[in-house]
Design a protein around this nucleic acid. Sequence first.
DNA 1: CTAATAAATGCACGATTTTGCAGTTTTAAG
DNA 2: CTTAAAACTGCAAAATCGTGCATTTATTAG
Lengths: 249, 249
Amino acid sequence: MLKAERHKYIMTKLIEDQKVVTTDLALALDLSEDTIRRDLNELDSKKQLEKVYGGAVQVKQKSANVFDIAISAEEEKKKIVTKALSLLHDDQVIIMSGGSTNLVFAKLIPADLKATIYTYSLPIAMQLSQHPNIDLIFIGGKMQKNAMVTIGMDVIQVVSKIKADICFIGASSINIKQGLTEVGYEISIVKKAMIEASDRVVSMFASNKLNTKMPHGVCDLTQLDTIVTELEPEDERLDEYRKSGVFIL
Amino acid sequence: MLKAERHKYIMTKLIEDQKVVTTDLALALDLSEDTIRRDLNELDSKKQLEKVYGGAVQVKQKSANVFDIAISAEEEKKKIVTKALSLLHDDQVIIMSGGSTNLVFAKLIPADLKATIYTYSLPIAMQLSQHPNIDLIFIGGKMQKNAMVTIGMDVIQVVSKIKADICFIGASSINIKQGLTEVGYEISIVKKAMIEASDRVVSMFASNKLNTKMPHGVCDLTQLDTIVTELEPEDERLDEYRKSGVFIL
DNA sequence: CTAATAAATGCACGATTTTGCAGTTTTAAG
DNA sequence: CTTAAAACTGCAAAATCGTGCATTTATTAG
């Protein structure tokens, strides 16, 4: 086994378990503890981990970089959004709201798709700006700092003039009675406008958003055309939603 | 067996196993380890793999991540923009154009500054969205993909309504006769509008931009109030600029 | 086809890297 | 304070590497 391999193994193990123990590694890799210690020291000096007595722990990344956006459960989200790729066609006019699920979606849009996309989310715009065939239009306005999206009258005004074919709306919460709901008032208003502006409305989210509720209403279920989760469309947890006429992908 | 064949075999093997070992390859291909080593060194210098002690591993692809923006000569740019921090005051209305120098500037804006900033650059907006006390307004429009800025009529329209105290304009090129010039027509138009909208105009750039020229004019030197470079203000390379009335920081 | 030239290969040998071990020091917990 | 585990240090054996050089193989010009 090459040293480089070992280092990779150690780093993988470290991410899995949040820590590594010198003696365990020596046993697992069939090497002396001295060698493991030397490896850990080396990785420590390269700032890839932090050595502690008995092993090593993850280096606390100082994320001083705004630009690396952490996406939780990225693999699961990939599964969800992949289903929705079939909804995309050339020459569509598309509106995308924010959220990490939509961001993952943006990453996976095929390079040969020719379409026009409106968005008000900085990260999504960054992502799409490297797509070769998308006409990208950013909806300007006052920035909502934490969500990195624009809000306010300027946004509403622009959105209300769009005639879009399809709209991908991120969901904070969804339930049978109130439909989509949001934590922020400003964003709920903008999402309303986006839904109004589109022929078809799609919402993608993980199933833990089902049957939850936030203060501000966006729209009720009848206004959604399609919802996409990681569940099978026939899953019983979606029964109620299916009955209300939403198509489930 | 030809060398090219061997290289192909090695690369295939590398993808299959995530690694190759010098001794194994020598045995499998019935060649001396020296030859294998020479092959690996060659492939390493062509960046097709990474040689390590005992063999080689796959090159770690540099995260095809849109979000990590490479800034060349960041330290030099820090030196430049630090000089300009003294121009910032609370309650100013500020316009910032794009460019990596402005991006470095955005990073260094003190956390306690309370101001309003307009920008049309995605990276700068991302950066400033982290700032606790800046009111940030993004100027929407069609995205110019490579520069990650918005362009077009929508942008002009918004900019023309701004009354800003100070404007930080990135420079592609500057010279005595033509003043600021740009490579793209669209961007030159937007920058013109930004300059019009501001009481005071500041441009920051490295000295290698001095005495160069691009196709599209933005403004002449008289419209610039201050320029900032890494040079001492008294440097003779700036003599001509100083004579034309620009303040040099 | 032949001769001249360039490229590739294998070998020898000194230099470098890696690794485990023994002895000593440091650390953390009772 | 005591003690056992963990870490560090120096060292030697083994593996791997780089380089100069001779030999073989391939290429090109005439």
